[in-house]
Simulated assay, not measured.
Amino acid sequence: MPYHQEPSLFGIKHSNRNFASKENWGKNQFNSSFPASLAAFLEHQGLENVYLKLNKSLQIYHSSISTAELYGANPISEDIFYSFESPYVPFQQLVIGNFPRVDLVTLSRNNRLCLKGIEIKLTALPDNSTCDLAEDKFGCELVIRPDTIVYLACSIAIHFRDNLSDLIALIGEGFEAIEDWQEGIHIRSSVFKMREAIDRIILSILDKQEPLVMQPIWKTEGKSPKLSENCLDVFVWSNLAFTQLFLDVARRELIALRTITRQVRTAVWLFKMLYDFSLNGQIDHRRVIDELSYDTKNDKAFAVSGKVTYPYMRSEILTKPRITKQQIKEIILGGGQNLLSPERRFDAIIFNSPEIFEPI
């Protein structure tokens, strides 16, 4: 009798998702489970993820990180458990209320330890802002949710849990004079000081930076729906490099626009969470996000286009990802592709139906 393999993803043997079930192949699930498997596949191929880190000059540079280090365990071992959309328990004590769920939490099955928490952002290459540029100028849009900023704040705050006085000293004085944190007019003049304080905090824990956001890329031929031959790879942002990404944008926007954009607001959110932590030893993240909206919806923290991310991600790997489209069948196993439920978008259907416009 021939062997029948159930739908599955490479390397993910133990998980809170049953990949034999169609309901676990929806868009929201696939956008985190496939990247987790892709990173495991990279490790299996003897490759490391591109790791964006921060140096002492507050510049982002490229290093590399194995998936085993990223996950805290061998990604294809029997010991690792992939827990998707789960709370990262070690940070629970740092917040008031429940800690937001993280895209992927890895656990050890042997000792029941919580290993790593990773936010996952699967991104298309190129995006709309770079699709008409030369191939070596393609970039990815990055959209970040507010919960990621909570996770970022906790990843920094935990290093000061037993030394709040050190954090207070790094933050500096003058912020107690802010009369109303909810009014943009009271905040704009202090944002530069907030950014300087965040920079001081970052530099003090530079040697403790750790992975925060996994950004897998999937590359198409321009803006067509056709995958490039070399189409998949993984970039990873450290918590401190990721912070510098939106601080850089916030600084430029504050100078040019003199208003509180999403990026500027994100910088304020991060600072306020760390400021509150220095005073109280906990972060009331829901209150910060809900009250400090500055007339902008808080459905997302911020978004940056491919033109913004490109200078940070620019590399041979961005131009020519290392995993080919033929290798996808080694990642999606057992006919799992047949359980996918892609969105039915009218514009996509029109674009892929050129015969409609052919002369009769």
Rank of each mutant, 00 (worst) to 15 (best):
P321T: 03
F346C: 02
P35R: 04
A20N: 12
K27A: 13
F271Q: 04
I255L: 07
N338Q: 10
A177I: 08
T106R: 03
I149T: 14
V50G: 00
K121Q: 05
S238N: 05
L142R: 01
I331W: 01
L240A: 05
D199W: 13
I96R: 05
S8M: 03
D180N: 15
L152D: 03
G172Q: 10
R262A: 12
N74F: 15
P225M: 05
L170V: 00
L240C: 02
G222R: 03
S21G: 08
K56N: 09
A241C: 08
V264A: 01
N110M: 06
P211E: 01
W181G: 00
N163L: 02
D276I: 09
F246I: 07
F271I: 12
F41D: 01
V150F: 06
Q182L: 05
G97E: 10
S189D: 15
A36M: 04
A36H: 00
S228A: 14
K56W: 12
N49I: 07
S77M: 06
R345A: 04
Q182V: 09
L279E: 11
A39C: 12
E210H: 09
A197S: 08
V213N: 02
G72A: 10
L133T: 09
S37H: 03
Y312Q: 02
L232C: 11
R314F: 10
I80K: 09
